[in-house]
Computed example of a mutant assay.
Amino acid sequence: METLEEMQARHRKEQKDLQSRVTQKKKNASKKTRKGVNTECEELEHQLKERQAQELATLNGEPLEPPEIDEPADEEPVDGVADALAESSISTPAESENGDSEQGQGGHKKRNRAKERLARRAAETAAAVEAAKLEAQSQPDVKELERKKISEQIEANGLVERLIRPDGHCLFSAVADQLQQVGISVGEEEGEGEKYKVVRGKAAGYMQRHADDFEGFCEEPLQEHVKKIRDTAEWGGHLELLALSRVYGVEICVLQDGPMQAIEPGDENKKGEEEKEKIWLAYYRHGFGLGEHYNSLRKAP
Rank of each mutant, 00 (worst) to 15 (best):
G205V: 00
P221D: 11
F172K: 06
A204F: 05
I229A: 14
Y196Q: 14
G183S: 07
A174G: 03
E161A: 14
T232N: 06
R162T: 15
L179H: 04
R200H: 13
R162H: 12
P221R: 07
A156T: 07
D213Q: 14
E234W: 15
V186G: 04
D213Y: 10
F214D: 06
L163T: 15
A203M: 02
I184N: 03
I229C: 12
V198D: 01
E220Y: 06
I154D: 08
Q180N: 10
D167V: 01
K227L: 07
A204H: 04
G183R: 10
C218F: 04
I184M: 09
Q223F: 09
K228G: 05
R162P: 08
G237T: 02
R230W: 00
G191S: 12
G183M: 06
Q153G: 03
V182T: 13
L159H: 08
E188K: 09
C170H: 01
E188S: 08
D167E: 03
F214Y: 08
G158Y: 03
I164C: 04
Q180M: 11
G205F: 00
D212A: 08
E220D: 04
D212K: 11
E190G: 15
E155V: 10
A174P: 00
A211K: 11
V199Q: 00
E192C: 15
E161C: 13
C170N: 01
E192V: 12
S185F: 03
V226Q: 01
Y206Q: 03
D212I: 10
L171D: 06
G183H: 08
D212N: 15
L163A: 13
W235K: 05
G205T: 09
F217I: 10
H169G: 04
V198L: 04
L159Y: 05
S173D: 15
A176Q: 01
D213H: 12
G183F: 08
G158Q: 07
